[in-house]
């Protein structure tokens, strides 16, 4: 006997869409509100910058000029900014567990649902 799903009311349909939207917007904005978002570069400006001390050769100086920056002091922050790639192993492990756990969970639950689908579509398995 094929599974007959219940009919969903209009209010239920709207409720389901709203739930999904709230989840999405939450995932996007919660890290922002907690101030945990993003990885910014930190500039380490040097004192009395010249093009030479910033490591820019003659051609590169021409290129900076063409981009509208002729004063080495103005390029100081851009040139000396660096990312910080240090990380903690524990948070790496948490992330790995989340990603792998997620896929394992989804595939296992999917398989359970998939067997029902195949059974209904092709009839019971002949043994």
């Amino acid at each position: 006997m094929a599974y007959e799903p219940p009919k969903q009311s209009l209010a239920g349909q709207i409720f389901d869409v709203v739930t999904l939207l709230v989840l999405t917007i939450g995932a996007l904005y919660i890290p922002l509100y907690l101030g945990l978002a993003g990885a910014a570069k930190v500039p380490n400006p040097i004192a009395n910058p010249t093009w030479e001390s910033l490591g820019q050769n003659a051609t590169e100086q021409q290129q900076w000029a063409a981009l509208g920056i002729t004063d080495p002091a103005a390029a100081n922050d851009i040139i000396t900014a660096r990312f910080d790639y240090s990380f903690s192993w524990s948070s790496l492990i948490v992330m790995a567990v989340l990603v792998i756990g997620y896929f394992v969970m989804v595939v296992r639950l999917s398989d359970r649902e998939y067997r029902e689908v195949i059974e209904e579509r092709f009839g019971t398995k002949r043994r």
């Binding site: 094929a2 599974y3 007959e4 799903p5 219940p6 969903q8 389901d16 739930t19 999904l20 989840l23 999405t24 939450g26 995932a27 919660i30 890290p31 907690l34 945990l36 978002a37 948490v94 992330m95 989340l98 990603v99 997620y102 969970m105 989804v106 639950l109 649902e113 029902e116 689908v117 209904e120 579509r121």
Partner: peptide, 28 residues
């Protein structure tokens, strides 16, 4: 942080689908 937040989002959404939404789907 974003990666973790997003994984949590997809995990919650999956549970929501499996336990609530899927009952409206015709199987075969």
């Amino acid at each position: 942080t974003q990666l973790s937040a997003m994984m949590c989002f997809y995990i919650v959404a999956s549970l929501w689908f499996h336990f609530r939404r899927y009952k409206f789907v015709r199987r075969g």
